[in-house]
Design a protein around this nucleic acid. Structure first.
Lengths: 131, 131
DNA sequence: CGGTATCCAAAAGGATACTG
DNA sequence: CAGTATCCTTTTGGATACCG
């Protein structure tokens, strides 16, 4: 009856605030900036500034936060070189590589299906606004 | 240089507010309640109240919003029976079934890897708080 | 039952300034 | 360069009340 990823039921009712732990990790992987960081890192190691430019419009705060979360979850490896000026390289761990590959697959699937989505929306909107 | 899901680069810089369209759809699929609804519907059609109980602690507002978004994107089919009291069945479209399958796969992978994540976190936290 | 509408609290997110 | 700290705006989400 309830939603579970593993068996046929039960979401493992998230009491109040905290959802089941895996849900939190999943949200990190699929978060707005997490997705883009993972996909970019799939191309190879990147410096902080490179990621910033690659991702587009991220504030330093959010990129930092995203990277720290992914590092803590064991998805991203942070290599800070003790030089002046500072140089920090980020790369995927093996775990992160597995995750990123799946995230990218879902992203690609979505892109490939955007025409279907657009058509569905057109139908939906037309039905809603017949006037 | 920039993150793209399709080629080797470019996130397709999201100018300001709106991200590229596919990113929005991806966020619908991977949203807090979207994930749980898709996974539950993979088990079969569900009524509004059934989904509400299965997902756990969702407000009516959020479940309605989630279902409407997924319906508009063509992932979910809504079948409202004209009876008293009202009865509405939700089910996955073919598109939604494809999406849900991938979402569930990512969810399952995450669950299967939770031990690795926990260990990574323990290491990270230990390194941060050596005192 | 299956919603919609409104209001309010909480969290996410960005701009700016500053540091090692 | 790669952050951290602070402030403020925007978005998200829940509680409540009401409707068909």
């Amino acid at each position: 009856m309830a939603v579970s990823v593993v068996s046929s039921g039960s979401v493992s009712n998230n009491s109040a605030e905290s959802l089941c732990p895996y849900r939190l990790v999943l949200e990190h992987l699929t978060s707005r900036w997490g997705v883009l960081v993972l996909i970019e890192l799939l191309e190879g190691p990147r410096r902080f500034g490179e990621l910033r430019r690659a991702v587009g419009r991220v504030s330093e705060k959010m990129l930092t936060q995203t990277l720290q979360t992914l590092e803590r979850d064991g998805m991203v490896h942070r290599d800070a070189k003790p030089v002046i000026p500072p140089r920090v390289d980020y790369s995927l761990t093996e775990l992160g590589h597995e995750a990123a590959t799946q995230v990218r697959a879902l992203g690609r699937w979505t892109q490939a299906r955007m025409d279907d989505v657009a058509q569905a929306r057109a139908r939906y909107d037309a039905a809603k606004t017949p006037a």
